[in-house]
Design a protein around this nucleic acid. Structure first.
Lengths: 329, 329
DNA sequence: CTGAAAGCGCTTACAG
DNA sequence: CTGAAAGCGCTTACAG
């Protein structure tokens, strides 16, 4: 590989001059031409490791997600990559897989590899300190002392209630899973409860347990069974903390011959879409994933450039119809 | 941040000695202890940029995928990350998004960022040369002069025919999409055709066009309609080049009241699973994704270490039942 | 075994 | 504007 020195020799100038041309600083037109010619002739490619060592900027961001299989995270990463690309940054992809030690490992690596910033959708407060002085932006998680980008989870819960109510449901159930333990996700339940109280609707909350991936279908089935009277479920509207959980609930209800949405309406949260069509899997409170990715990247880059940022960005959610709710009455 | 020099001062030894301890080389027990103490006391973290500049090893691999949203690619990346982690390597995630220029961009970046190797699931021959002397392993794509890891696509096509036949289908149809244009994917069709000829089964091939994501449902619907006689489809077994395409076909058939699997059996290819349960979305020829990831990573690391590798690794596929085929007759 | 020194490929004050 | 030189934080022959 040709180095800056080779280019300098070839062009008959000093290495400093080559560096200046490479970085767009001003040099004489004559020298600029000579350098550019030599760069082309030698097929010179800058060694970013040498540059990074000197400048302390690596144009690299670590993106830490629980996993890349969960559609919501995959979608987030899908957009994050495109945003980073626009800014000329590249991405280290880190999967924590819910293992605290892997979180730590990647956080340490981020420091050793001199990433300019970290975009996190995972780890907890205690580990955040390991990031040292690297700017961190959390997406979809809010921690005390961190800059973060979320969607309006509280309002999401409210919106679910409003939609269920407007479409005729009167006795509501919120089912949450403990899998994505975060204060943000809990807010969905808070918004749900608040809206129910405001509308004086009777409601119940069910915790389906801590099963990370293979949602606890049986547990939910049993719970629903216990709340059946004369083959009818005592709830006529269900809101789940995620779409994944919503699909499990949907399946259980189909199995029990509960008609959705005729007898019971169901709203999930996230706004995931069908694999091979754009359609939503179920009616849902959709997070603005693309906007969240955009805001997250923008914020971390501001932080890197030491520009002022908003501590907390909260983006609006929307209700999307996916066939598990009735038409508006 | 403390540097190796700070550690040397603190421990009262030379920087070379610190370096040796850090790299597990032999030094006196006394000095080793002193250095380790200082490292702990100062919270020293090695600067990988400095090390990489000197050693030319970065313990970094670029993974280039068309996108991270397609479940098959997401799944591959999911396992690749875990394998790389085991080996102490980290991953630059690159999405080409089917744009040739982005492919080139990332290939160039890989050189400038001094990645040790590239794991590609995308680009074409012409661009491969841009990798310079960086080892490249292709997964699921075979190019003339590249090392690659695939699953047995040809046999996948054969297996689909065998399974359809064994379960009672006699007139077969292969539907392929042009989206994943690669000689590997084409082999699925070749295997299909070969097996049909061998069994003297009549068959047809339909090309659903080049629609990348939102599969061309209407086109397929029209095609099927043209092949209906008295409300019956003239094929009783369909094999699609991917599961995504299979789902589109399934949906079209349901819409046309063609009963699956009673009247027509359907087999896809890839072996994707349902989001919230482990179940397969449809009967399918499953690729051993985890093994492919493992083999891909292992191969690229051998290449990096200049160890001998197998030019081509072909892993076996299996038939998995997903409800769109009948039980064995 | 250990220390002093050169060098990896850049950037950036500093003279001229 | 340009060149010579120092230095980023490591590793690695080379003497001792």
């Amino acid at each position: 590989m040709a180095t800056i020195k080779d280019v300098a020799n070839d062009a008959g100038v000093a290495v400093g001059t080559v560096s200046k041309v490479l970085n767009g600083h001003h040099v004489s037109a004559e020298n600029k031409r000579k350098v550019e010619e030599s760069v082309a002739r030698l097929g010179y490619q800058m060694n970013y490791y040498a540059r990074g060592l000197k400048t302390r900027y690596t144009y690299t961001v670590a993106v830490i997600v629980p996993d890349i299989l969960t559609p919501f995270f995959a979608c987030l990463v899908y957009y994050i990559e495109q945003e980073l690309y626009r800014y000329g940054y590249r991405m280290f992809l880190c999967q924590s897989l819910h293992e605290a030690e892997k979180d730590s490992y990647y956080l340490q690596l981020a420091r050793q590899n001199k990433v300019d910033g970290i975009l996190g959708i995972t780890f907890n407060t205690t580990q955040l300190s390991q990031a040292g002085d690297i700017p961190v932006v959390m997406i979809d998680r809010h921690l005390d002392n961190s800059v973060c980008v979320t969607s309006d989870n509280f309002h999401g819960g409210e919106l679910a209630v409003q939609q269920l109510f407007a479409r005729g449901s009167r006795k509501l159930l919120f089912i949450r899973s403990g899998s994505r333990l975060s204060s943000e996700t809990l807010k969905r339940g808070d918004g749900f409860a608040a809206a129910c109280r405001e509308k004086q609707l009777s409601y119940e909350v069910m915790d389906s347990g801590d099963d990370a991936c293979g949602f606890n279908g049986e547990g939910i089935g049993e719970y629903l069974q216990m709340h059946m009277t004369d083959g009818k479920l005592e709830f006529d509207g269900i809101y789940t903390s995620t779409d994944g959980l919503g699909l499990t609930v949907l399946e259980q209800m189909r199995r029990m011959n509960i008609r959705v949405p005729q007898d019971v309406q169901l709203i999930g949260h996230d706004g995931l879409r069908h694999l091979n069509r754009g359609a939503y899997l179920l009616s849902s409170i959709a997070q603005p994933v693309e906007d969240m990715a955009r805001a997250g990247v923008e914020t971390v880059i501001h932080l890197i450039r030491r520009e002022p940022v908003q501590e907390m960005t909260v983006l609006p959610v929307t209700f999307v119809e996916g066939g598990t709710t009735r038409t508006m009455e």
